[in-house]
Amino acid sequence: MTKVSMKVNGKAVSRDVPDNTLLVDFLREQLRLTGTHVGCDTTQCGACVVHVNGKSIKSCTQLAVSLAGAEVTTIEGIANGADLHPMQVAFNDHHGLQCGFCTPGMIMTGIDMVNRYQAQGRELTEEAIRFELEGNICRCTGYHNIVKAIDAAAQQMSGMAKAAE
């Protein structure tokens, strides 16, 4: 057992957990943040994607104890109060989800890719979105509307970024 302290969705949390506890289990079982899902056991589906210190990672492949002091953001933490994040809105607008199981991972991955491309001044083309989604599997949507949703959110987010300048 090790005491793990980190910041999750802006709140300091601390729990005693076995050393082999994965971050995804820490989030789901200890903190009861069940929006982060587990869809595979080989780090390929992306249902478990969260942000650690602002970057997307697969929480099924990180030990909780390795993240002492980290800032973790999950799907439950990206809305600003009642205002949904533009990526969440875009998934609804463009019907980017059906069963919803892959959706938290898709949204977290989507936000990360938009942020990265914008930070690097690169254009997030359709091709780039599809390429960036390599590590996220959706069985329901055929990806068509997920790609459209991320594209739309990217426009929205860049608009917001410009407005903030």
């Binding site: 999950t74 439950e76 998934f91 609804n92 919803g100 938290p104």
Partner: peptide, 18 residues
């Protein structure tokens, strides 16, 4: 637009393992 989306896009869906 789908009425059910909000719970899924905000991580509040309730699946059996939840």
């Amino acid at each position: 637009k789908r009425k059910e989306d909000k719970r899924f896009t905000t991580g509040q869906g309730r699946y059996t393992d939840d």
